[in-house]
Amino acid sequence: MKVLFGHKDHLVRMAALFLAGIVVFLVLKAVFVPKGFGVYGHYRAGALEENRAHPVAYAGRAACVECHSDVPETAKGGGHAFIRCEACHGPLAAHAGDPGEHQAVRPESKVLCARCHAPNVARPARFPQVDPAEHAGDEACTACHTAHNPRQQKEGAK
């Protein structure tokens, strides 16, 4: 090989090697950086849409009352009026999407009511709490209370 740079020839060769490395890096960068990276900030712009695409499990109260419009009527003025349906009934987006295919299951009042109303010293003192066994024995809460408006006693309640 011809010597072009005198006694520094080997250094120039090394420098060329480094330069080649940097070029390879820049090419890799141009090829492999994902599309849309850095459009809004230092992240892949597509990640926003992908986060939005996650399926919904809780339909939201508006979807429930589309069909069950009688429930807000019952609940009106009561202690449970502001509670969203799925707080007690669980996630029902599938049911809202296709009520025929996906049946909603009525929650077990003995378990459900106690979750919120069993006595617990960490609960705010003014929050209504009652020991279900002491208060009603084996009787279901809904035997006397209307679930959607609990101060409303059912007919025949003691």
Binding site: M1, V3, H7, K8, D9, H10, L11, R13, L17
Partner: peptide
């Protein structure tokens, strides 16, 4: 590893030492 350069003259080595 020589990168094709076999120059190990005193001058070249001096360059190496400085670098």
């Amino acid at each position: 590893m020589t990168l094709g350069s076999y120059d190990v003259s005193e001058e070249a080595l001096r360059v190496d030492d400085r670098a």
